[in-house]
Amino acid sequence: MTELKGFQQPISEDVIQLAQMGNMLAFEKIYHKYSDASYNLALRITNNDTLAQDIVQEAFIKVMNKIVDFRYQGSFAGWLRRIVVYETINRIKFESKLHLVSENEFLETKSHDLFDYEWLDACVDLNVLLKQLSITSRTVLLLHEVEGYKHKEIAALYGKSESFSKITLSRAYTSLQRMALKQEQRHAFKR
């Protein structure tokens, strides 16, 4: 059986109920269970350690203040992750690091060749490539492909249309493919 990681880990309702009553030990349990997942999500998106730590702190303070509003509709981890994602998006907007493209640039093109072969197979360091993507591309790619967000949800986060999310994801993959191939070529020359 595979061990559940990050936001996939469940937490008992007893702990949530205790936290809703203001029990700090219960909060500590919640924190230890999900803080690293929250930190990794924020860090991968922002690519900034200090900012990511700050986001985690703010997000958990919000969790502590709002936990009484949690109504058990959906998983607790999903609810908590939404707070972390909102905090991250708001902070990068605030830090003016989010360079949004105007809506008319999102003319959907229907590519058919991005997944003709598994171009990430030869990738040496995926993390380095991700850091080279624009913050918007990286955010959409991670939210959609790693965190399982739908285009509709990402669009809502940015206050944009679904096309924005679709095109940004497609562009992110195109850039990632180009960089992966370059990286592969460089390593082939070295050999």
């Binding site: 690293d36 930190y39 990794n40 730590q53 990430l120 197979d121 995926l126 492909e145």
Partner: peptide
């Protein structure tokens, strides 16, 4: 291929917060 690429993205190295963060 999409699934394989997704799997790679899901295996990114994880970092941990400092022990005094709580």
């Amino acid at each position: 291929n999409v699934i394989k690429i997704r799997d790679k993205l899901n295996q990114l190295p994880s970092e941990s917060l400092t022990s005094d963060s709580w």
